[in-house]
Structure formats: C-alpha cells, structure tokens
C-alpha cells in the first residue's frame, strides 16, 4: 500500500500504516504492511476507518488473530473511531505483494 502525500487524509494514513507495522503474522514473523496484506485504508471523516485487507491463505488458521491485531492497533492509534475490516480475496495475495523489506525479512 503506497500513501501519496497529496491524497486526502495522507497524514492519518501514514499514522495508520505506522501502527500496522506492529501487527506481526505469527507464522511468518513479518508485519502485515511488509507482507502486503493491507490493500487500502479509508478514512470516513472523523468517525470511522475502513481497512481493506487480505490473508495469505483463505481460512488461514491465524486469520482471526491477524484481523484482531489490525483492529487493536488502529483502535490504539485512533481512539474513539470505529474500525471496519473489509476482508477480501480479490485479488488473491501473492508473493509479488511483499515489499522489499518483507522479502528481506523472509530471506528471499
């Protein structure tokens, strides 16, 4: 997910991204941003945040822990806002979605 400084809520999006660096996939030991699991973060005024994200495998046994982690991290970074998780498998996650840092952490 790339945040452009000219887009609306750019500062908030960067803050959200920073928060999500702390959410680690328990199996791969890489954070959800560098894994490329976060597709979009949308801010709807002052009230809610909608995260469009995926999992590396549908019905991943760690899926609930990862989505809970995203929700928890954003609730701490943005107290009082409603966090919506929009889980999608379109497009399906693939290795090309890893960031350079993610690849380095996985030893690719």
């Amino acid at each position: 997910m790339i945040v452009s400084l000219s887009q609306p809520y750019a500062n908030e999006k960067i803050k959200a991204q920073q928060a999500l660096y702390n959410v680690i996939d328990p199996e791969l030991f890489v954070n959800v941003i560098d894994l490329g699991l976060i597709y979009e973060i949308d801010f709807d005024g002052e009230n809610s945040i909608t995260v469009t994200m995926t999992l590396s495998t549908p019905h991943c046994p760690m899926g609930e822990a990862i989505t809970n982690g995203v929700r928890n991290a954003l609730e701490i970074a943005f107290p009082g806002r409603t966090i919506n998780i929009n889980l999608t498998f379109e497009p399906r996650w693939n290795f090309e979605m890893l960031t350079e840092e993610g690849r380095a952490q996985l030893g690719v």
Binding site: A19, N22, V23, I24, P26, E27, F29, P61, M62, E64, A65, I66, N68, G69, V70, R71, N72, A73, I76
Partner: peptide
C-alpha cells in the same frame, strides 16, 4: 503451538507485546 497461541493471544495481537507461537 499455533492452536495454543490462538487461545491465549489472538485477542491481544496488536494491543500488547506478546510472545510468538515459536
């Protein structure tokens, strides 16, 4: 370890510093 980890920590992920399944 993942099954047991899920029981203890799945709701704490992203909220507190927790051990990993390993």
């Amino acid at each position: 370890p993942f099954i047991v980890w899920n029981r203890h920590y799945k709701n704490l992920s992203g909220k507190a510093k927790i051990p990993l399944p390993k």
